[in-house]
């Protein structure tokens, strides 16, 4: 299956060049942590992720076509 990973802010350093998202291919049954590992985001590091506006945790399974947003835990504003 294919999903899109969209890091926000400084986490974009895990992408190449100026791109804002990346499409990755994963075997069925893969998790959020598996997907993020593909672009070098460690599952032990501090981040939040969401799919379709819903917060997801590292062990959640991803599905074909998902748009996975990932961002640092943030406060302020």
């Amino acid at each position: 299956m294919k999903i899109t990973i969209r890091p926000i802010g400084p986490l974009r350093r895990h992408l190449e060049g100026d791109s804002k998202s990346v499409e990755v291919t994963l075997p069925d049954g893969s998790t959020v942590a598996d997907a993020l590992a593909l672009i070098g985001i460690d599952s032990e590091a501090q981040w939040n992720a969401s799919i379709g506006g819903q917060l997801v945790y590292k062990d959640a399974e991803v599905s074909d076509g998902d748009d996975l947003l990932v961002f640092s835990p943030i406060a302020g504003g």
Binding site: Q54, L55, A75
Partner: peptide
């Protein structure tokens, strides 16, 4: 720190998408 980097790049506008997602 990383939060400061985010504010530098976007201002507080950089947190909207994430904070909507987390509720």
């Amino acid at each position: 720190n990383e939060g400061g980097d985010l504010f530098h790049e976007y201002g507080t506008a950089g947190i909207t998408e994430g904070l909507v997602a987390v509720g």
